[in-house]
């Protein structure tokens, strides 16, 4: 996976592209860190360009959400489509992390 971070005001936006899997564990830590260290109260994880996600990838989103909550922030997922959207619908992750289309 690759990611781009856009910081501006109330929202920090993280765009994840490619596939989000077990192998991205280390790299995703910097996403978690960036969200927690930003001044924004809301983090938007944009999955519009994320092609596939595996169970470890879902785990990373859960981790980011948990860490952000503990830092008093909100996380939401946006743009999910295709395989990623199916995984989210199947696993009902939206009961834990808000999902916007």
């Amino acid at each position: 996976m690759d990611y781009k971070i856009e910081e501006g005001g109330a929202i920090i936006k993280v765009r994840i592209s490619g596939v989000l899997t077990f192998d991205d564990h280390e790299r995703f830590k910097s996403v978690v860190k960036a969200i927690n260290e930003s001044d924004s109260a809301t983090a938007e994880i944009d999955l519009g360009e994320t092609k596939m996600i595996d169970s470890a990838g879902i785990g990373m989103l859960l981790l980011a959400n948990d860490r952000a909550k503990k830092a008093g922030k909100e996380v939401r997922l946006t743009g999910a489509n295709g395989h990623v959207l199916k995984v989210i619908q199947l696993s009902k992750v939206d009961e834990i992390i808000p999902v916007e289309s």
């Binding site: 879902i58 859960l62 619908q89 199947l90 696993s91 009902k92 992750v93 009961e95 834990i96």
Partner: peptide
């Protein structure tokens, strides 16, 4: 339909 909240993520699912 076997969708449903993945297990072990929160209590009271």
């Amino acid at each position: 339909d076997a969708s449903g909240l993945i297990m072990g993520c929160r209590s009271g699912g």
